[in-house]
């Protein structure tokens, strides 16, 4: 399979690889996918106020899955939480020129963003109730 230059670039130089402290209240963690399906993405955000100040990922999956999650962290860093929620998988498809068989990678990346934000929101809601 031929990969686009952008996929290759993210695969060879993934941005924001790593982990944030998942116990911290300012960190939201999303883990999506399943090992049996060949992709698992973990995406984490650190939020200050309503702005995402840091993002990290780790991905088990094909090159397109790695590229989609790497790109997602790049895009959400610096955005507000609401802005990050606006990111659509189709934008990822377009940016990385993903072929039809790889569209699920972009869907997973969008899910990972949403899941990390949901985790963060759940944590901060819990904090306010305390």
């Amino acid at each position: 399979m031929a990969y686009s230059d952008k996929v290759l670039d993210h695969y060879n130089n993934p941005r924001n690889v790593g982990s944030l402290d998942k116990k911290s209240n300012s960190v939201g963690t999303g883990v999506v996918g399943a090992p049996e399906c060949g992709d698992v993405m973990k995406l984490q955000i650190e939020v200050e106020g309503d702005r995402i100040v840091d993002a990290k990922f780790k991905t088990f999956g094909c090159g397109s899955a790695i590229a989609s999650s790497s790109l997602a962290t790049e895009w959400i860093k610096g955005k507000t939480v609401d802005e990050a929620l606006q990111i659509k998988n189709t934008q990822i498809v377009e940016e990385l020129s993903l072929p039809p068989v790889k569209i699920h990678c972009s869907v997973l990346a969008e899910d990972a963003i949403k899941s990390a934000i949901a985790d963060y929101k759940a944590k901060s809601a819990g904090k306010q109730e305390d």
Binding site: P14, P35, C37, V40, K42, K58, T59, F60, I66, L108
Partner: peptide
């Protein structure tokens, strides 16, 4: 493996097969 969330979990002693992955695609 540096990039793999699964390898990280295993290093942390998490049993991957015990996780409910039903949210997956």
């Amino acid at each position: 493996r540096e990039l793999s969330p699964l390898y990280e979990m295993v290093q942390e002693g998490i049993d991957i097969s015990s996780i409910d992955w039903s949210g997956g695609h």
